[in-house]
Design a protein around this nucleic acid. Sequence first.
DNA 1: CCCAGCTTGTGAGCCTGTGCACAAGCTCCC
DNA 2: GGGAGCTTGTGCACAGGCTCACAAGCTGGG
Lengths: 222, 222
Amino acid sequence: MIPPPPRPLPHATVARLPDYLRILADLANVGEDTVSSGRLADLAGVNAAKVRKDLSHLGSYGTRGVGYEVSVLLDQVREALGLTAARAVVVVGAGNLGRALAGYGGFEERGFPVRALVDADPAKIGTVVGPLDVRHADDLPALAVELDLRVGVIAVPSSTAQDAADRLVAAGVHALLNFAPALLSTPAHVAVRRVDLALELQVLSYYERQLRLAAPDTLSTS
Amino acid sequence: MIPPPPRPLPHATVARLPDYLRILADLANVGEDTVSSGRLADLAGVNAAKVRKDLSHLGSYGTRGVGYEVSVLLDQVREALGLTAARAVVVVGAGNLGRALAGYGGFEERGFPVRALVDADPAKIGTVVGPLDVRHADDLPALAVELDLRVGVIAVPSSTAQDAADRLVAAGVHALLNFAPALLSTPAHVAVRRVDLALELQVLSYYERQLRLAAPDTLSTS
DNA sequence: CCCAGCTTGTGAGCCTGTGCACAAGCTCCC
DNA sequence: GGGAGCTTGTGCACAGGCTCACAAGCTGGG
């Protein structure tokens, strides 16, 4: 009955746990009962020792000589990430990106159902996106309570991203995924993560050139 | 006339350069001539010493007592990232996410115009998304040459992500941005970067709970 | 019962990245 | 000309993360 002590996990480990989670779910689906750190490592594309150390951080005990039990590990990783219950998501911004994210099936599949889509532009209110209709951003506080919204996805232009964040925080949403290329200022108890798609392309661009200049031309034969 | 020596930058620096680039572009737009590391650091949300060390890596010389000249720095960061010319992007997968990414204005703005959208599903061929019409994935080799495609965005389900990657590589596209939650195997000279949106939500979920358990309740006054 | 063969969990060393603090150097004003 | 006031560039020490290598421990067969 003791609520599990909130042990802090290394950042690098936290970033890998969702990968393990997905792989374990796949393994469970094909009926695998146990898995070794070596196999997990292959599937995740990392070092086997790293897998073992990651798993040891969450107190997970495998069995020497055998490996880990898939179902047990699944539960432990879910618990460590705090994914025991689904968390309702609200998307702010019904533009191109916002509508796509709201309709993207990949979220619900992994425990994050999108339950609301809001915008500040009156012209967009009431338009329908899949099973959702666009609501006004002013309704956020009411929606947050009614739908138990836990995560806010910010898909508005940079210029209004801070405003969107403020509204979400005021409505009691304390986990924000920000797609705008801007720095948000939020209270200390709010978790923010930024995803900048153009940034990814720019970084990619750098490494592509590095590889091109390093290894001259390996022509792919058609 | 010597092509600039391909000095390898620290990964952490590469990841921050696009942020500096965006901030510098904004500063240039509002007519700022010079900027100090301190100001850049504030705008980027990082430590000033880190900014200076990052910039020193690309041989950029500021002026002591004054700061950096915005226009010069802009050019240097662009050059370091290999963004001297626009790079044409092809999106593979005309589903929900693919169509949104193809229509997302944020790419073109930052030097990555989406010039093609392909899919393997015959039912989708010919449908129109903004200024693009969906082409068949078999046309990739021809399109790659015709449009000088440099970057491939993979927006297909995990099950076909590897196939999409293979087709792109075969067509001569050596920079891949993968939105599918799957590990791709590619030749050594191909740069791959993965963006997993559900993973971001899961990581966010972890930190949100950490913060909640650490600092009980700081109610935002409305 | 005992041994061979795996697999986990972890200690040790290394490497990358961070932040501090300071010398070097530029500019402007008196 | 000289000095005050900034700001850059960097040496240094530290923290976090990664990999190796190995002891501890389980299982199954003879």
